[in-house]
């Protein structure tokens, strides 16, 4: 019954991403009583994150460090994962459904001749069978899938499976994995930062997103102010990106990012189906729009009809008061 689960932790810009704790929580569920979760850290100078992973539920941490692992590349990470899988023979493998996880997991699955369930948002145990839930048709429907061949293997969408509470009294071993990398075929020449780096859109608990109604790049300033107050991130519809009000790195929707924050505030976004695909599974949706008939109101929990430039400053002030009171 009990299983040994290997999960891949992920750091970005020198910080451990929250999804690392979420894959541990998911791993615990699969491992069952008496099972174990091994968390794997890959990178250069990432060993210091080991403690945090143990406090969040990892039973053992494996650290693979190498200068060539500083930035993700397919070949290097694949070699590390294959080596660790070979050494540890886990029953299950969980990888974050992030940019690198999406690139890596299918390749590993092919190498291991294994099934893989991508982008899962929930896990159920039916006896000894593990059943994963994942969105399909851009979140308009869901399916439940299980792996029938190879390793029990899934990628986990950030912000959906709750991390466990931190337990400072937990202890666990940390073990270095010595890796030799060869035949790396991609060379990363440069990384151009386009994201502000303040709050990661994929992991943000609050998102304030603007559309064509924002009218200009300057029009995004009140949105940024509101996002700052709420400790959230700014996003945008394709319309706003196409109109060059903001960078495509902020785009939410079918071709942009898929987000599931606790609170999504759509500002001047009409709610085209492609945009809804990227945000309709947010927990609470607030829409602010001049047009009372805009389709965004069909998915919004709360709708404010009016000029966003009138409403936003008042809203920001009120949130400031709430935050000051809390």
């Amino acid at each position: 019954m009990s299983k040994k689960v290997l999960v891949l932790a992920e750091a970005r810009d020198g910080e451990l991403r929250n999804v690392s704790f979420e894959v541990i929580a998911a791993g615990k569920k699969i491992a069952g009583d008496g099972g174990e979760v091994y968390a794997l850290l890959v990178g250069d100078g990432v060993g210091s994150f080991s403690d945090a992973l143990i406090k969040q539920g990892a039973d053992q941490v494996l650290v693979a460090e190498h200068a060539d692992l500083k930035t993700y590349t397919t070949d290097a990470y694949k070699q590390v994962l294959l080596q660790v899988i070979e050494e540890q023979s886990p029953d299950a493998l969980l990888i974050p459904h992030t940019s690198s996880g999406k690139d890596l997991a299918p390749r590993l699955a092919a190498k291991l001749s294994s099934g893989l369930v991508s982008d899962i948002i929930d896990i159920e145990l039916a006896g000894d069978e593990v059943v994963f839930t994942r969105p399909i048709y851009s979140g308009k429907a869901f399916e439940k899938k299980s792996v029938t061949g190879g390793m029990l293997f899934a990628t986990v969408r950030p912000n959906n499976i709750a991390a466990l509470d931190e337990d400072a009294s937990r202890s666990g071993d940390t073990k270095d994995v010595s890796v030799e990398l060869k035949d790396l075929r991609s060379i990363i020449k440069d990384v151009v930062k386009k994201t502000s780096g303040k709050v990661d859109l994929a992991e943000a608990k609050v998102i304030v997103a603007g559309g064509r109604g924002v009218k200009s790049a300057e029009g995004f300033e009140p949105l940024e102010e509101l996002a700052d107050i709420l400790g959230g991130a700014v996003g945008a519809s394709r319309g706003a990106c196409d109109a060059e009000y903001c960078d495509y790195s902020l785009q939410i929707g079918q071709t942009g990012k898929v987000v599931t924050p606790e609170l999504y505030i759509a500002v001047g976004i009409s709610g085209a189906i492609q945009h809804l695909a990227g945000m309709s599974n947010s927990k609470v949706i607030v829409a602010i729009n001049k047009d009372a008939e805009a389709p965004i109101f069909d998915v919004a929990d709360y709708g404010l009809v009016g000029d966003l430039f009138d409403i936003l400053p008042i809203l920001t002030d009120e949130f400031k008061k709430v935050k000051a009171g809390a």
Binding site: T98, I188, K189, D190, K194
Partner: peptide
């Protein structure tokens, strides 16, 4: 495209 940032690969 890496979650909004741009990576240049050779």
């Amino acid at each position: 495209d890496v979650e909004g940032d741009v990576e240049v690969v050779e």
